[in-house]
Simulated scan of single mutants.
Amino acid sequence: MSPSWPRARRPPLPPLRHRRPAPPSTGSVCRTTTTGTGAWHLPPATASFWWGMAYLVLLCTVFAFFAQNHAASRTSPSRVSLLMGSEPVFGALIAVWGFGERVGPGGWIGGAMIVAAAWWVTLPPRRA
């Protein structure tokens, strides 16, 4: 059981550690920049490619990350957890209806379980 610290006296959180993701991300970069023969494959040198990359990095990744954290800090933790926990369902539905992706029975069952769990936790508690 953790002690209930007053808000002003809570111990500081430890700094984030970024050691673990480094090897997989380094391997991903090396794998995507080489061909099957081991030769390096350079990205296109066209301006349209790099403008597209800048758009994807700045708007779709950086801005979305900060907007999501800004919105999450202004609502309750339970609401944030429901939204973040149901994100795979939204992604699957967009893939199915927007892009024609096929989902097998296991995928539909998993999605239904996520929706059912999200609905269940929103129910008011029963009085004993």
Rank of each mutant, 00 (worst) to 15 (best):
R102L: 14
P21E: 02
W97M: 09
V62E: 02
L59S: 06
G38C: 14
H18L: 15
W97I: 08
V80D: 01
C30A: 15
P77H: 03
S73Q: 08
Y55A: 10
A64K: 09
I114T: 02
P21W: 01
V96M: 06
F90Q: 09
A128W: 05
A39W: 07
T32I: 12
S78E: 11
A128T: 10
P124R: 02
A67I: 02
H18N: 11
A67P: 00
G52W: 06
S86R: 05
A112C: 12
M1G: 07
G106L: 12
T46R: 06
A39T: 15
C60V: 10
P125D: 05
P14V: 04
V57R: 11
G91V: 10
P11E: 02
E101Q: 14
T37W: 09
L83V: 07
P43A: 11
E87I: 05
A47G: 06
G36R: 10
P124K: 01
G107V: 03
G36Y: 03
G104S: 08
G104C: 02
T32M: 14
I114H: 00
A112M: 13
A22K: 13
G111D: 07
I109P: 00
C60H: 10
V89H: 01
S81V: 05
H18S: 12
A95V: 04
S73G: 09
L93W: 05
G107P: 02
R31K: 15
V29C: 13
W50V: 04
G110H: 01
P12H: 02
G111P: 01
S2W: 07
F66S: 08
L13W: 03
A47H: 09
E101D: 08
L16A: 13
P23Y: 03
E101S: 10
W5T: 05
S25P: 01
V96G: 00
W5Y: 15
A72E: 01
T61F: 12
A118N: 02
Q68L: 12
F65L: 11
A118T: 02
A95G: 06
G91D: 10
A72I: 00
A92G: 07
T122D: 05
V121W: 07
Y55Q: 11
I94D: 03
P77E: 03
T26K: 11
F49W: 14
V29N: 12
R102M: 09
T35I: 06
A39M: 15
G52F: 04
F49H: 13
A95P: 00
V89R: 03
G52D: 04
L58H: 06
V62T: 08
L42N: 11
P15Y: 00
H18P: 03
P21I: 00
W108F: 07
V80G: 00
A22T: 10
R20H: 12
P44Q: 03
P12K: 02
A22W: 11
Y55R: 10
A71F: 08
P15K: 01
T26Q: 14
L93C: 06
R126T: 07
G27P: 01
A64E: 12
F99K: 11
A117Q: 03
A67G: 02
A95L: 14
W40P: 11
L82T: 02
I94W: 11
R9I: 08
P43S: 09
G27Q: 14
S81I: 05
V29T: 14
G107C: 05
A8L: 13
S78Q: 10
